[in-house]
Design a protein around this nucleic acid. Structure first.
Length: 391
DNA sequence: CCACATGATTCCTA
DNA sequence: TAGGAATCATGTGG
């Protein structure tokens, strides 16, 4: 390491120096050892020209808004850090994401220090089964609360650590800058900006903490409060309503949105429960049609009776055999015998002209054809529900 | 306790 | 995005 030429080897505080000499010495401090630099700094501080020079520097700094003029060697690293975060502070301020995280942590009861995180989590878990079956959720929820409490503790202790570190670092940097301000122009604004940058940096870290806490809570929720664990069988009435629709639309068991709404309303279910039910029903019926024959007979017979009672026989029945539904594959039938059985029960719902049409459809399959869009069922499914079930 | 039924979820496809 | 298929997890009856 070749030492750069040093300007004035002699006394630390020369008696007569013009401003350029003083400046030169300030710049030379960077190349000196710590002790030397300290001694020289002290000498310069005591120099009679210093106040004047300092005010000139301040003025220049104000005008140019430039970066640091000097960089005492012992602070190089920290200043590098400060410079590096200087760019970061201009990023978008505490944004919506932080707000969302805060809201979620609040809702989950994590934000409140140790106040039994009931409110959000548990209350929401209670409504997590929209099927109208209120659950008693005491046992697993106590487990959930215990784990949530652990998460909360970790969260708060980490948060406290970060906050303390942030405070300490801020104080440290502020002190440094204040000390530096004796040597170079450091405006309060600059200090403020630095502090802001530090806070920005630490709040980014805090955001990560919040994010991982949120993730932990979500995982916990999905594990302990998963809706599947809350499963309740549907009420008999709901099952009947669904089955009636299913078997009376056996060649096209794809209820439209309106039909789903109606079914949901009648069965006290949600739309997604209705969709799930039909999804499950279709696949299970298709897999094992023989098993469902009895059920099919019951419901198709029943709906046939219902419709005649209501007196609108052609309404939903017509949708079974409409040309457009014939354009896609109808429901598959298990075997010739089963097919006949189903057809016979279905046929009781068919208006005479569509009979042949139905037969040809019924020998096809839902599969292979694109799922019948609900709108393609021109009989007006919603109407068919309304007319076919009177309750 | 076990087997089966059933509601919900996930992944994939058209 | 809806639906199919596989799967999970709970409910239920013997």
């Amino acid at each position: 390491m070749a030492a750069p030429p040093r300007p004035a080897p002699s006394p630390p505080a020369p008696r007569r120096l013009d401003t350029s000499d003083v400046l030169q010495q300030i710049m030379a401090i960077t190349d000196q050892s710590l002790d030397e630099a300290q001694a020289r700094k002290h000498a310069l501080n005591c120099h009679r020209m210093k106040p004047a020079l300092f005010s000139v520097l301040c003025e220049i700094k104000e005008k140019t808004a430039s970066s640091f003029l000097t960089r005492p060697c012992e602070e190089t690293t920290k200043q590098a850090f400060l410079v590096s975060i200087r760019g970061i502070q201009d990023e978008d301020p505490p944004d919506a994401q932080l707000l969302r995280l805060d809201n979620m942590l609040l809702a989950e009861g994590v934000c409140r220090p140790e106040k039994r995180g009931r409110g959000g989590a548990v209350a929401r878990a209670g409504t997590a089964t929209p099927g109208g079956c209120p659950n008693d959720n005491s046992i697993e929820h106590s487990d959930y609360r215990a784990k949530l409490s652990q998460i909360r503790q970790i969260y708060h202790s980490e948060l406290e650590k970060y906050e303390q570190a942030c405070r300490e670092f801020t104080t440290h940097v502020t002190n440094l800058l204040q000390e530096q301000s004796r040597m170079r122009p450091v405006s309060p604004k600059e200090i403020e900006r630095m502090v802001g940058a530090i806070h920005g940096k630490f709040s980014a870290i805090q955001m990560q903490l919040k994010q991982s806490t949120c993730e932990a809570v979500m995982t916990l929720r999905s594990r302990l409060l998963d809706a599947r664990r809350k499963r309740r069988n549907f009420s008999k009435q709901a099952t009947e309503v669904l089955n009636e629709y299913f078997y009376s639309h056996l060649n096209n068991p794809y209820p439209s949105e309106e039909a789903k709404e109606e079914l949901a309303r009648k069965g006290g279910l949600t739309i997604s429960q209705v969709s799930n039910w039909f999804g499950n029903k279709r696949i299970r019926y298709k897999k094992n049609m023989g098993k469902f024959q009895e059920e099919a007979t019951i419901y198709t017979g029943k709906t046939a009776v219902d419709t005649t009672e209501v007196g609108v026989p052609g309404n939903h029945a017509s949708c079974l055999s409409t040309p457009s539904s014939g354009s896609s594959g109808p429901f598959p039938l298990p075997s010739a015998g089963d097919a006949f059985l189903t057809l016979r029960t279905l046929a009781s719902l068919q208006p005479p002209p569509g009979g042949g049409c139905l037969q040809s459809q019924a020998q096809g399959s839902w599969q292979g054809a694109t799922p019948q869009p609900a709108t393609a069922s021109p009989a007006g499914d919603p109407g068919s529900i309304n007319s076919s079930t009177s309750n």
